[in-house]
Structures are given as C-alpha cells and as structure tokens.
Amino acid sequence: MIEVKHISKDFVTPKKYPGLKGAVKGLFSNEKIVKTAVDDISFEIQKGEIVGYIGSNGAGKSTTIKMMTGILSPTRGECLVDGIDPNKRRKENAQNIGVVFGQRTQLWWDLPLSESFTVLKEIYNVSDSTYAERMEFLNRVLEMQDFFDRPVRTLSLGQRMRADLGAALLHNPKVLYLDEPTIGLDLIVKDNIREAIKEINERYQTTVVLTTHDIGDIEELCNRIIVIDEGKKIYDGSLAALKETYGTKRRVSMEIRQPEKVAKLHLASLLNVREEECSVNYEKESNTLSVTFDKHKIQVPQLLTAVMSVMDIKDVQIQETELSQIVKEIYSHGIMEG
C-alpha cells in the first residue's frame, strides 16, 4: 500500500543570533543552516497494517508523515501511496487518504459539526447512499450524535478528536494517517478512540499509520512499529521483537544502611562482568542504590550477595523493564547506541 524509497528531507534556515547585539548582526548577515530532518528512510507498509511510527520530538516523524500525505515534497527519494506519488498527483492521493493531526482540526471551527460533514461530503464527492451508510457506521463507533449539531469550537478535546477522526474517514480512505491521535485525552476517551481505530481497520482493511508518544496506543493498536531517531530509521519490526531485543534489562533498588560505603562498592569486579553491563546509581535523599543490569548475565541473588558483602540492605525492590521504559530510552536515544 505504501512504499517509501530512500526518502530524505532537508530544511534550510537562516542563522539567528541571540540578544540585542545578535539582532543587529542579523540585519546584515545571510548565513544559512541546512538541517536534514529525514535522512534516507525506506520501508513498505501492506494493506490493512497498523503501523506505529515513533521517535522523540524533532526526530522526523511528522516530516515523514507530511511527505507521505503530499504536504511536503521530499528533497531526495520517492514515496508511493497505492501506486500514486502524492507530490505529483496530489489530488488523486488526497482522495485516497484521511488525515488527523492531533493539534489542528480540519473542521470548520465556527460551524456546527454537521455542516462540516455536509461540506466534506461534497469535497470528496461522496454519494448520498454511501454517505448515509458511512455516517451510520461512524456514529456507531465514534458516537458523534450527541454533539453533531454543536459548533466545533464548543466541543471538548475528546469530542473534537472523534469528530476529526470521523471527518477523515467519511470518504473511506485507503490509508489513514494519525498524528498523536490520543494526545491530551483522558483514559476512557483514549480507549474509545483506540477501539474505533481497530474496528475501522478490521472492517474496511484501512491501512493506519500513526505517530504517538503514548505507549498504550502502541501496545493496543500496532502490530508493527518503526522507530526513527535523528532522521534515521533505527528499528522496524514487531512489538514483541522489540521487547525481546531491548527488554532484557532489569533494575534492582536497594535501601541501604551505610551510605558511606557506597564509594567502596565495585560491583562489576565483584560480579565478574564489564562496567557497562551493570550500572550503579546512588540517590542520596532516599538513601537508595539502584542497579540496572542484563537479566541473562546476572542473577538477582548473586547481585544481592555481592552488595551485602560490602554493606547492609534494609529493603529491596525488583523491577522488570516495561515497554514504556524501553520507549523512553529510545526517545532519549540511549539504548540504540549501546
């Protein structure tokens, strides 16, 4: 359904200088900075897949999505959506896709929601019978009837997001792009939105590409994730595989009795492993020593024995690294380099 081939996007910006002096300097300077926001990314997405496209802020997520939707032209490379290059045949592509950008509504702000749908029906050339059928389905999964006659600006964030999703789906697009679809929503609404996305995907085989910071979105929706960092693709595969590869770390926190002995503790040599395989962190306020390590290399009792050979322990807590932890680390891009 989607083929992205060696796509890159450069942005050129004039250089800015800080302060009043900088402003004066800026008057006369013309220096430029080139920033490569997306750097040679390729992937293919099949019909009916739900793909999570994740990365930290500024990693290039939105830029990629914007290239796939036809908003931006790639600097290099090519992208085909259902065989169409969105930049060359923008109108045809627009008919094939639905887009929801979480922060920005596509609806007519001052008008009742129903009016937006009437206009969209015309814009996308939806026939009366198809319209009736779609509206029935969308009303069932998104429950829009309660606020269908209210002006968009009076809707709550959750209602607006449902409305936007409905608007993006009215013309039964082959591909649905969602940029942060659950941002700022409460748990129940998030759940509703996710259910709706799942149902749409199952019923119409709609391909869904979504960017998100919400781990719940990824766990519940995506059968595949693509991780991007600093414009480069660093992971592409199933969620389970990601957990398997990066979820091997374990963390033990110990409250200790003799903080003065922390300096004398050389865990790596005691356990006979390399320094980077067990990282030690001591927090003075809570008097807590935390150790992060690879669960295949070190056993917990082994670790505790080693620590107790130097100092006494008051309390112990063992944490399995959760997915949110992995993603957090991906976002702060520590894990992929190690």
């Binding site: 914007k66 036809g70 908003i71 045809e92 627009a94 008919q95 896709i97 920005r104 596509q106």
Partner: peptide
C-alpha cells in the same frame, strides 16, 4: 504557521 497544510490534503485545486 503551517495552516496551509489543510489545502494540501484535500482533493481540490
């Protein structure tokens, strides 16, 4: 401010 995005997304001139 990127408001122009919405024109790019619709199947019209």
């Amino acid at each position: 401010n990127g408001d122009f995005d919405r024109y790019m997304l619709r199947p019209m001139n």
